[in-house]
């Protein structure tokens, strides 16, 4: 069976710096896959490469078997890929509601359909409904995160990519964000989740890849990775798993 997302031998470089080194991963339809690793592991670069923002030096990104080479970022949104970046990047000078409507830019919807979809997001994040008329720049960090996720969902993505959704958020807000992620997972959305908070990621993911220096060094279920102690060793350097690095 063709995976929903297939990354094959992808390399990405920024000048002389190699951010991804012949990396391969996959995600089945409806699966939640976490990418765990320290800063500089290449997690965000991988998401940006899938979104079409950074070019591949080699390799291929396939969505439902289709090679996305040559597809611009906005076209990839139309194909069902949405990214919530680490920086959230809500449009600060637009209202909360306008930010949501922008998210549906690739869909041909009537005003009533757009409103219905926005109401669905408000149901997922009731806090946004209270702030629907506020300028996004005046929202709290947690509300901006919810808005960034809601905006991405307005595109009705088959594949949702979340980059550090808990970064800088209070625990109670993180709980709300992860509750929403769990709901999306249960609804059958394929999710690629980048997270340094491995415990949080493991609470929702089906499978995880452990990354270091632009490569996948381990793969498995949350339970198996936890049992092996690999996450601790990579994130906190308690024992270097150098022997497992690919050439």
């Amino acid at each position: 069976m063709t995976p929903h997302l297939q990354i094959e031998d992808v390399s990405v470089t920024y000048g002389a710096v190699r951010a991804l080194n012949r990396l391969s991963i996959h995600a089945a339809k409806g699966e939640t896959v976490a990418l765990i690793g320290p800063n500089g592991a290449g997690k965000s670069s991988l998401l940006l490469a899938i979104a079409g923002v950074v070019p591949l030096r080699s390799g291929a990104v396939r969505l439902e078997g289709r090679d996305l080479a040559g597809q611009e970022p906005e076209q990839r949104v139309g194909l069902g890929i949405s990214l919530v970046p680490e920086t959230r990047d809500v449009f600060k000078k637009l209202s909360t509601h306008e930010n949501l409507l922008i998210g549906a830019s690739r869909r041909r919807l009537t005003r009533a359909q757009m409103q219905a979809d926005a109401d669905r997001i408000y149901a997922l994040f009731p806090r946004l409904a209270e702030r629907h008329n506020h300028m996004a720049g005046f929202l709290s960090g947690g509300e901006q995160q919810m808005l960034a996720i809601g905006r991405a969902l307005m595109a009705e993505p088959g594949l949702l990519m979340l980059d550090e959704p808990s970064l800088g958020l209070a625990p109670v807000v993180t709980d709300a964000v992860y509750a929403a992620i769990a709901t999306l997972r249960d609804q059958g959305t394929t999710i690629l989740l980048v997270e340094q908070n491995a415990a949080r990621a493991f609470s929702v993911c089906d499978r995880a890849y452990l990354m270091q220096a632009g490569q996948v060094i381990e793969e498995g279920s949350a339970a198996s990775l936890s049992a092996r102690g690999s996450v601790e060793s990579v994130l906190f350097g308690r024992s270097a798993p150098a022997k497992e690095l690919r050439p």
Partner: peptide
């Protein structure tokens, strides 16, 4: 209008506008 707030989005952050599907 829809194109009106897309204009404001492109004006504020062209890269993010593309990432949410706006044809800049």
């Amino acid at each position: 209008t829809r194109i009106g707030y897309q204009m404001r989005a492109v004006s504020e952050n062209p890269r993010m506008a593309r990432l949410v599907g706006v044809n800049s």
